[in-house]
Structure formats: structure tokens, C-alpha cells
């Protein structure tokens, strides 16, 4: 069994276990490794964080498939827990979707979601979103399902219809997307807890994801609340970007003002701590294992 086989199987088991799958979006390989070390059982790779981390740009469709998939591969290779992928709109038509599924599946992703926004898309909690006709999205989902090589590579549908045509339309679309083959369902950016509850209640037999963005359009809830509502997956997509930005800015301002980092020493890990965390001992041991031994012929 390959690592990819294990990751897909593990993620599927989590999603259908009845327990809440607690996901954080990792902007890069380092943050993914930190998430793994701190106890996350699976992580997410998504557009907002990747656009910020790789391009220093907002989530407005500037990050393309090449950039997103390269970043995903770095993250997947850095950890031994499942990584679920934000595939945005699929970056084109059904032919692009088929390629994308093959690429993500072969790199060892646990699954991906495809959304029904027009391209270039916007973060789901930004204003001004537009969506494609339902049949266009259904064809994309069918193309994704047809392209996958393994049934446990999970396909999630995401709809952004709530902001455009309302809650019931978003639920109806998601129902049709599930019928078209989506294993998991995600209704983006409901504005009230009552709306969240209605979404969860509409899919009693399908794992549904809740998206928790600090200061976003959806009320912030605890994982316990989300699970009690009936959601199977909770994702926290932006918290690491905001935290990293806050910490980096605070440190750098101090450096500009004081010309030293000594007042910030208690806000960072130490040289030996980081080397231990990043696996320096393991790398050194690996090199030692394959050290050249003298041979007498």
C-alpha cells in the first residue's frame, strides 16, 4: 500500500466516522508540518492561504493550477497525514478538471473540492461573487468523478450560490451536485447560525463541511458547536495566515525601530528547538546510514 493509498483511506474513514474532522489550512510545507506535530489528523491546502504565501496577493484567481499544484505537492510531501485540496473552479472546463484530478490524485492528495464560481474566482467571503449555471458545475463534477482512479479519492462540491441566489438555491444546487457524484458537500458563507443549521439538516446522510473564517461572513463557532449542528468537517482556512502576518509584522517593526531581535527572544523558538522540530537529527542520521564505507578489492 502506497502512502497515497493510506492517506486517501484514512481521510475517507475520518469523514464517514461520525466524528468531526478538524482541518486547518496550511499555507506552506512548514506550517503543514507544525500542524501535524501539534496533533492535527488531516490538513487542507487552499487558495486564500496559498495566494498569500506564494504570491502575496489576495484570493482573486491569480494563483493558477500550476502554482496551486506545486504548493500542494510540497505540503503533501512534508507530512504523513491526509491533505485535502481546494481546486477552486477547476481552472477551466471538463478537460482541465480531468487533468487536475489525475495530477492531484497521483501526487497523493486525499481528495479535493470544486466550486461553482466563475473564473477568476473570489474568496467565498468576499463580495461580488458570480456563479456558473448549475449544469456547467454538474458537468465538472461528473468529469472529476470519471477521472479519478480510486473511489476513496473524495470529491467535494462547493457552492457559492448563497451570496448570489440565496440559501435554498445553494442547498438545491448542493443536492444536485451530490446526485452528480460529489461525496462531500460544502455550502460556502451562510450568514447566520440558523442558515448553518438548515444546511446541516438538509444533508443528514452526506458529510458536510463548515468553513470558519475569523471576521468572515459566517458566525465563528467552536468545533463542538459545529459538530452538534450535524457537520462532519470543520475547516479553519485563514487563521495561520493572519497569525503569521501578525507575528511577523510585530517582530519586524521592532527590528526596524530597535535594530535588534533581543526583545523578541521569548516570542520565538530557539535554534536548537527548531533544528529538532525540523528533523535535523533525522537527516544527519540518514546521511550517516549511507556514509561511504571503505572497500578493499
Amino acid at each position: 500500500m502506497t502512502k497515497a493509498d493510506r492517506m486517501r483511506a484514512a481521510f475517507k474513514q475520518m469523514c464517514f466516522s461520525g466524528d468531526l474532522v478538524n482541518l486547518v489550512v496550511a499555507p506552506d510545507a512548514l506550517s503543514a508540518k507544525i500542524a501535524e506535530r501539534t496533533g492535527f489528523k488531516a490538513i487542507f491546502q487552499a487558495g486564500y492561504a496559498t495566494s498569500a504565501n506564494k504570491l502575496a496577493q489576495p484570493d482573486r484567481g491569480i494563483a493558477d493550477f500550476g502554482l496551486m499544484s506545486n504548493s500542494a505537492r510540497e505540503i503533501i510531501n512534508a507530512v504523513n497525514i491526509p491533505v485535502f485540496i481546494d481546486a477552486d473552479t477547476g481552472y477551466g472546463d471538463e478537460q482541465n478538471i480531468a487533468r487536475l484530478v489525475r495530477v492531484y490524485e497521483s501526487m497523493g492528495a486525499a481528495g479535493l473540492f470544486i466550486e461553482d464560481q466563475t473564473w477568476p474566482k473570489r474568496c467565498g467571503h468576499m463580495d461580488g461573487k458570480t456563479i456558473v449555471p448549475e449544469d456547467v458545475m454538474i458537468n465538472k463534477l461528473k468529469a472529476a468523478v470519471d477521472a479519478r482512479q480510486h473511489d476513496d479519492f473524495l470529491i467535494m462540491s462547493r457552492t457559492d450560490a448563497y451570496a448570489v441566489t440565496g440559501l435554498q438555491s445553494a442547498i438545491d444546487r448542493s443536492r444536485h451536485y451530490h446526485e452528480a457524484g460529489a461525496d462531500l458537500v460544502f455550502v460556502e458563507a451562510p450568514k447566520t447560525k440558523a442558515d448553518m443549521q438548515k444546511v446541516a439538516d438538509s444533508f443528514p446522510d452526506v458529510p458536510v463541511m463548515a468553513n470558519m473564517i475569523e471576521n468572515g461572513k459566517t458566525p465563528l463557532m467552536t468545533n463542538e458547536e459545529i459538530h452538534e449542528m450535524g457537520f462532519s468537517i470543520a475547516v479553519h482556512p485563514n487563521v495561520l495566515v493572519y497569525t503569521e502576518t501578525f507575528a511577523t509584522e510585530r517582530l519586524l517593526k521592532d527590528m526596524v525601530t530597535l535594530g535588534t531581535t533581543k526583545n523578541q527572544m521569548d516570542q520565538m523558538v530557539t535554534f536548537p528547538q527548531f533544528n529538532k522540530f525540523i528533523g535535523l537529527d533525522d537527516i544527519n542520521a540518514l546521511e550517516q546510514k549511507y556514509a561511504t564505507a571503505p572497500i578493499k578489492l
Binding site: 493558477d64 493550477f65 500550476g66 502554482l67 481552472y91 477551466g92 472546463d93 478537460q95 482541465n96 487533468r99
Partner: peptide
């Protein structure tokens, strides 16, 4: 990628 549809490539590639 041994395909003939130019639209399969992304700009960063």
C-alpha cells in the same frame, strides 16, 4: 504533458 489541447496548460507552467 503529451496532450494536444493548449488550454490544459496553466500560465505558471
Amino acid at each position: 504533458i503529451a496532450q494536444t489541447n493548449e488550454g490544459l496548460t496553466s500560465p505558471s507552467e
